[in-house]
Design a protein around this nucleic acid. Structure first.
Length: 569
RNA sequence: CGGGGCGUGGCGCAGCCUGGUAGCGCACUUGCAUGGGGUGCAAGGGGUCGCAAGUUCGAAUCUUGUCGCCCCGACCA
């Protein structure tokens, strides 16, 4: 591409609402433009990178034996009603009607459509296993789209769905996808980690997410420093303390704690560690009542874990102030388990405490010296808290660290969740009908582009990994418009790179060198060759790598060979 | 959904409090100079101030409504 022919210029200033670095750089380089909240136009420069990511994904999916197809973005509501997700999916599902008043959705994912295809087309176990995939736009009406294309409403996704005769085959298909994903992210040049995950709204049992490690990531992930255990914070199991609970030493006393509505205030007023306090959280119950969830004062409740408890309503909701009053006779801040009559769950760590402090179900009062088994019944002990850095790893080796990640891939073993609801079966070797087992596997193609920038940039701009750079080489001629020699040399070089099949950008704009240097760095093109009269006199060109700070003179005789060597090393 | 904030040329902003017919920087156009790190000088083009209604002789400015967007929160017990 000749840069003089690209009408999109780079920006020095960026819209004030762009927060994260990838969003700012994508706007400044002219990769994307915002159309509306969560909707982005991919301009020529951005699309080049997007297509390169797509190509790598496609190559590795094909290599893993998956078959590409393409499904409509618009789907009939009947399929969603059949799977049950018409009700379960919530407002993120964009629903609309056509001129005949028939209901449709804009697909946020395609389990229903692919299962419909599978039940029509697949008749025999001999056709299994099979894995279908597509790379296509999805729409999810996010509560709060943000961070540019990182959490957009419409985005490009690679989604794959596999069908199997039994669980063993599903596990094998899942393993193949795990390996394909690892190859994909490695080829793209990302620092990533596969972590144990929750199924979320897609459902299913076994599932792992692939996270790109970056400070700006929206997810917290916990990983062991002793082995390769890694899990989304939502899922990371906290290990129950092994020691026996200390014996009760204090007697139960009620103490005044005026306005101590938070653990921080409470522990300050009483001069005790937050870890000796118990937080009582009331959440809505499944049967209409409330459920008490107890965690240690220095711990945080984990909503994903808590809503797996049978009595807890899904999705998890904190009880309203009115219901708190009905259930306890007091207001939030002074709730405790002692006179509470509803269902009580205590986190393992809270259940392990002796002589602890908790609310007295009376305004401005707490109990001290509370002991399980003596002052109230032994609790049902469960894991309902987030792990913290320093906690022992559930793998038994090492302690947990917390890092932030951007979820770029997610793989699931769905089992028979959809195939059962939608009656997708095949005949087995005995001629008996068997419900198929399914897996599904997603990659956020557009999100990968943003994640790559988050992970690799500096003060001057993007530093693209080789594999997804919009151009591999940029040619910067000095005084292109005035110097015939420079122009001829640059044009010749541009042709040679093109013939060699290397993606080359020629900055033939009538701009000063400083502008071109700044732009080449902003755009993050890995290899730069400067062509100037001085160098031509000496028979040299100037080479510089985007990541480096030094330029080196190279001979004019074979710059293409020089770059090819760099690309292959 | 709750709280806060913002809508003024393509982008970043000032003007609004105290009404008098819109300004600055970047970008863009033209010319001259410059030509190895976002160069300088000069001359230009471009905005019915989100939209609607109201108050007023007069509204970017005051009032009401409406639409759009952004940020924070959604463990607080």
């Amino acid at each position: 591409m000749r840069l003089s022919q690209n009408p999109i210029s780079t920006l020095k200033e960026v819209p004030a609402d762009a927060e994260v670095i990838s969003h700012r750089l994508m706007l400044r380089t002219g990769m994307i433009r915002r159309l509306a909240a969560g909707l982005y136009v991919w301009l020529p420069l951005g699309l080049r990178t997007l297509r390169k990511v797509e190509r790598i994904v496609r190559e590795e999916m094909d290599r893993a034996g998956a078959l590409e197809l393409s499904m409509p973005t618009v789907q009939p509501a009947e399929l969603w009603k059949e799977s049950g997700r018409w009700i379960k999916y919530g407002p993120e599902l964009l629903r609309f009607k056509d001129r005949h008043d028939r209901e449709f959705v804009y697909g946020p994912t395609h389990e229903e459509v692919i299962t419909d295809i599978a039940r029509r087309e697949l008749r025999s176990y001999k056709q299994l296993p099979v894995n279908f995939y597509q790379i296509q736009s999805k729409f999810r009406d996010e509560i709060r789209p943000r961070f540019g294309v990182m959490r957009a409403r419409e985005f490009l996704m690679k989604d794959a769905y596999s069908f199997h005769i039994d669980e063993a085959s599903l596990a094998e298909g899942y393993r193949l996808m795990y390996e394909a994903y690892s190859r994909i992210f490695t080829r793209i040049g990302l620092k990533f980690r596969a972590v144990l995950a929750d199924g979320g709204s897609i459902g299913g049992s076994v599932s792992q997410e692939f996270h790109v490690l970056a400070e700006s990531g929206e997810d917290a992930i916990a990983f062991s420093d002793g082995d390769d255990y890694a899990a989304n914070l939502e899922m990371a199991a906290s290990v129950a303390p092994a020691l026996p609970r200390p014996a009760a030493a204090e007697s139960l006393t009620k103490v005044p704690t005026p306005n101590a509505r938070s653990i921080a205030e409470l522990s300050a007023q009483l001069g005790v560690d937050a870890a000796r306090c118990v937080k009582t959280l009331l959440v809505d119950g499944r049967d209409g009542g409330v459920v008490a969830l107890l965690v240690r004062g220095d711990h945080e409740m984990n909503a994903v874990k808590a809503q797996k408890l049978p009595e807890v309503a899904v999705p998890l909701r904190m009880a309203s102030a009115t219901r708190v009053r009905e259930a306890t006779g007091t207001e939030p801040g002074f709730i405790g388990p002692l006179s509470f009559t509803g269902k009580i769950y205590a986190d393992h760590a809270a259940a392990q405490l002796a002589d602890f402090i908790c609310g007295a179900n009376e305004k401005d009062m707490h109990f001290r010296g509370v002991n399980w088994g003596r002052d109230l019944p032994e609790p049902q002990s469960v894991d309902i808290r987030n792990v913290q850095a320093g906690d022992p790893s559930p793998s038994g080796r090492g302690t947990l660290q917390i890092a932030r990640g951007i979820e770029v891939g997610h793989i699931f073993q769905l089992g028979q969740l959809y195939s059962e609801a939608m009656h997708a079966g095949v005949l087995d070797e005995q001629g008996k009908s068997v419900t198929m087992f399914m897996g599904c596997y997603g990659i956020g193609v557009t999100r990968i582009v943003a994640a790559a920038i988050e992970q690799s940039h500096d003060a001057n701009g993007i530093i693209w990994p080789q594999a997804i750079a919009p151009f591999q080489v940029v040619l910067v001629p000095i005084n292109y418009q005035k110097s015939t020699r420079v122009q001829e040399a640059a044009d010749a070089l541009y042709r040679e790179f093109g013939v060699a099949g290397i993606d080359v950008l020629l900055d033939d704009r009538d701009a000063r060198p400083g502008v071109k240097f700044a732009d080449s760095e902003l755009m993050g093109i890995p290899h730069r060759i400067v062509i100037g009269e001085r160098g031509l006199d000496a028979g040299t060109l100037e080479y510089r790598h985007r990541g480096g700070t030094e330029s080196t003179d190279i001979s004019v005789t074979d710059p293409v060979g020089y770059i090819q060597h760099k690309l292959n090393s």
